[in-house]
Design a protein around this nucleic acid. Structure first.
Lengths: 180, 180
DNA sequence: CCTCCACTGAAACGAGTGTTTCAGTAGGAT
DNA sequence: ATCCTACTGAAACACTCGTTTCAGTGGAGG
């Protein structure tokens, strides 16, 4: 009966996207997805176990994107990533992502551990693949810059919702710097 | 006896910098700063009132920085801001800042409300002042880009602690784009 | 001296937390 | 039919939370 487990995890994930992870608690969650605290603890061991699986799912969504944008130069990859980041249907996921990121900075233990560091490294690796020669200091600075622009523009977008202005900023640097 | 109040607020601020605001609670805080929950509630009305004052203090620190970097072109301002962001002694404050930012995205009510939006607007205004002609679409995109780089590089720095790589990324775009 | 009032310690309140205990129930294997 | 195992509902446990109640304390003003 791992169907039920997967089903509950999927529903819990949807619930977390709406309500955030910061003050997630078992009883309201269980009530919302038609289960009980008892069953959630039985299936996932503990609340931290559940949260870990939720974060793993968020990371899986992220890695799925990475595969989709592979290939092409730095500019193409960045453009593809940005259009994904800017899509309204990903807003909730990205807010959740940022929450995990900021939380993992202050609490190196717990379920969040290492979330931020991994999030940086995953992306830098992908961007390195898109560079013709990625082993120079300049190339490293360049992909760090591209990543910073994407992340910074995302922060702006999440706060203001201004897709056009942030997209213009991203396109500005792509035109200037992303050619390779 | 507003001395005592100011003193407690100052100590509570230091405590929040160390432990974060996410799971701040009155009893441990009071014990750490030599007070009691009763007194904190008496002086600040409620926990939310206290948190609001703590966030106001964080914002005041931010605005103090803004005044200090005013004057000069976009590149000079950005350079000054970055050297402030990269300073190790500001790491705790910036982690707290990011926490407030991410939290305000999901909870438009509560003490955090509007923190993220205000944080974006404050900085865009400052950057606009540093531009010779700030009313064109290009100028808006440019300062949005500069802000994104600073914020994105900050995210990277907070997660990895790699001052050199992130600083190189910031300097890279300043050399290319920040003139004037 | 007495009164008033800003201030504070101790304890309790009611609600919510993750987790555990216990008593089952359902369903397949023997 | 019996046994075993996987699963689940109800209730309790042992907290922690923000906040309130109540009984003071200490010092200034009359």
């Amino acid at each position: 009966m791992t169907d039920r487990r997967d089903d509950l995890l999927r529903q819990a994930y949807a619930y977390a996207l709406e309500h955030g992870l910061a003050d997630l608690s078992l009883r309201p969650l269980a009530a919302a997805i038609g289960s009980s605290p008892r069953v959630l603890l039985f299936l996932f061991g503990s609340k931290d176990g559940l949260v870990r699986e939720l974060l793993a799912r968020a990371r899986a969504d992220e890695l799925a994107l990475l595969d989709r944008v592979r290939g092409g130069g730095l500019a193409e990859v960045a453009e593809a990533v940005w259009s994904w980041l800017a899509a309204p249907e990903h807003r909730a996921l990205l807010t959740l992502w940022l929450e995990g990121y900021s939380r993992s900075l202050l609490a190196p233990d717990g379920p969040w551990a290492d979330f931020a560091r991994a999030a940086v490294q995953d992306w830098l690796d992908i961007l390195a693949d898109a560079q013709p020669s990625s082993d120079t200091v300049e190339a490293e600075a360049e992909r760090t810059l591209v990543l910073a622009v994407l992340r910074g523009a995302l922060l702006d977008l999440l706060a203001t919702g201004d897709v056009e202005r942030t997209s213009r900023a991203v396109r500005t640097i792509m035109a200037e710097y992303g050619q390779t």
